[in-house]
């Protein structure tokens, strides 16, 4: 009896020792900043250190700032592009790859997954030259094939579509890997039964395959939404800031400018909470949908 209690005490102590780094780091560098971000969001700040309570001022200032709405519109357009262009493409590629007899499956998967590793900053560096006037590969190829103007202003006038294309290149393979893993769990006999009942490939895909992978589908949509809404490095590095007429301004870039250009940590925290609440609401919605489907 005594030995068992002794073992348990030892186990408890070891457990706390093992979780200590995680617990301490989380308390100091996540919870404390989270608490401070609430205080800051309701304070008027003058650089780091000097604050004074300000009620809802920062939120009011943000929501009445036309620049914030420009940022939100750009971010929302980019997010819609990611969800409605990139994810369907990822699903289509995954369904082509999901054939056990396909030759070169591993190579295809590798090639499509690879751009992800380049990372946002370096993709932005490539994008800045790839979409540049005259020297950029995009304009040179489109000039040679369809006669597009060599000076077509991707990065001045058509920023959002350029960003959507670069993000597509970066992440379509990543999402494809998720979808592929999900497709591999689809019950073949269900698809086969639908085929025997006379369903064509499109019908089988929509009525049998999609419902079976729905949990992964909603999860990937959520991840993609959360990631897209935090767009920052891609336009910031590619355009060296917000770009012509703020066409590359995003919500996180607005936050960054408030915090580190204007030095207003309070405004930045208010923007952060507006964004955070929107993302948490999306996550809650996804959980709700998932739970309803499970029931």
């Amino acid at each position: 009896m005594k030995t068992s209690a002794h073992i348990h005490r030892r186990e408890r102590r070891a457990a706390w020792a093992l979780v200590a780094p995680f617990a301490i780091v989380t308390a100091v560098f996540i919870f404390y900043p989270l608490y401070r971000s609430i205080v800051l969001a309701f304070s008027q700040t003058f650089g780091p250190g000097a604050t004074e309570p300000a009620g809802w001022l920062n939120f009011r200032m943000t929501l009445t700032d036309p620049l914030f709405w420009v940022a939100l519109r750009n971010t929302a357009l980019f997010t819609l592009g990611s969800l409605f262009i990139q994810l369907p493409l990822a699903l289509i590629l995954a369904s082509f790859l999901n054939r056990p007899d396909l030759r070169g499956r591993t190579v295809y998967r590798l090639v499509m997954f690879m751009p992800q590793l380049v990372g946002l900053v370096f993709a932005a560096m490539i994008g800045g030259v790839f979409f540049a006037k005259r020297v950029g590969a995009v304009n040179q190829i489109l000039h040679a094939t369809i006669g597009l103007d060599l000076d077509f202003p991707w990065l001045d006038q058509h920023v959002t579509i350029s960003l959507i294309l670069i993000a597509l290149w970066l992440y379509v393979g990543f999402n494809m890997v998720y979808f592929l893993a999900a497709l591999q769990t689809v019950d073949r006999s269900l698809v086969e039964a639908a085929r025997i009942d006379g369903a064509n490939p499109a019908q089988r895909f929509i009525h049998v395959v999609i419902p079976s992978i729905r949990p992964v589908l909603t999860f990937v949509v959520l991840l993609s939404f959360i990631g897209s809404m935090q767009l920052f490095e891609l336009p910031y590095v590619m355009l060296n800031g917000a770009g012509t007429e703020n066409r590359g301004l995003t919500v996180v870039m607005y936050l960054y400018q408030q915090a580190f250009v204007a030095g207003d940590l309070g405004m930045a925290s208010a923007v952060g909470w507006l964004l955070g609440l929107a993302l948490i609401a999306a996550a809650a919605l996804q959980m709700l949908v998932a739970r309803k489907e499970a029931a």
Partner: peptide
């Protein structure tokens, strides 16, 4: 679910202190 940009300003403040 905590978005990293939310922590940007207070983290800067913390390390400043």
């Amino acid at each position: 679910v905590v978005p990293p940009p939310l922590l940007l300003a207070p983290t800067y403040e913390l390390f400043h202190r």
